[in-house]
């Protein structure tokens, strides 16, 4: 009979820690970026969480998903970070909802219905010109709504409306691509 620890060791022998990091780091960063919105902080949180995971691998229950386990550590590191910075934290209910959404995506990947980031990349390509431009300026250009409004010659509410519309369209697109789990 194989114990969970033996199963984990087998998994690690087969994949190696680096492979696990490669498989999961982007989703972990997406989780961290959803709560902190700052790239450098999110990278630090995920790096620290992965190092803790590397150190505590023996404590890991192999029956669980590696990504979900490390996500829990990222969450813990995020709470520590908000305490140390005395900064406002995301409400607990919203964190729970965020976790639930990531669990949905974990399940979609396990069941072979696709990777959410790959699906999102495809969905983005389906967006219209103005919306894509606004989305790029906001996320890739990291510009404020006021900046984007000035640059595009529109009002701030229009920018916000376009961003919301983009999110709505992408969300619907993900539901279609990842299947029923997204409606759960």
């Amino acid at each position: 009979m194989t114990t969970p620890l033996q199963a984990l060791h087998k998994t690690l022998e087969a994949k190696g820690f680096e492979t696990l990091v490669r498989e999961h780091h982007r989703r972990l960063l997406a989780y961290a970026l959803a709560v902190v919105h700052q790239v450098d902080v999110a990278e630090d949180l995920v790096q620290d969480a992965l190092l803790i995971a590397h150190r505590d691998l023996v404590k890991f229950d192999a029956a669980r998903d590696f990504g979900a386990w490390v996500r829990g550590i990222v969450r813990m590191k995020y709470l520590e970070w908000t305490r140390s910075r005395r900064t406002e934290r995301m409400p607990e209910s919203q964190l729970e909802e965020l976790d639930a959404r990531h669990r949905d995506w974990d399940r979609a990947a396990e069941e072979g219905r696709g990777d959410v980031l790959a699906a999102l990349r495809l969905c983005r390509e389906e967006l219209g010109g103005h919306v894509t431009e606004t989305l790029d300026l906001f996320y890739s250009g990291q510009r404020s709504c006021a900046d984007i409004a000035a640059r595009l010659g529109v009002s701030e509410p229009v920018v916000r409306k376009r961003l919301q519309r983009a999110r709505d369209v992408l969300s619907e697109c993900l539901k279609k691509k990842l299947g029923a789990v997204h409606d759960a």
């Binding site: 960063l29 959803a34 965020l98 990291q142 993900l174």
Partner: peptide, 18 residues
């Protein structure tokens, strides 16, 4: 931000980051 929005926002930020 709704549950979908926060999670989706994180994904979009990650896609933009790398």
């Amino acid at each position: 931000m709704t549950r979908d929005d926060a999670a989706l926002d994180g994904l979009l930020r990650e896609l933009a980051r790398a």
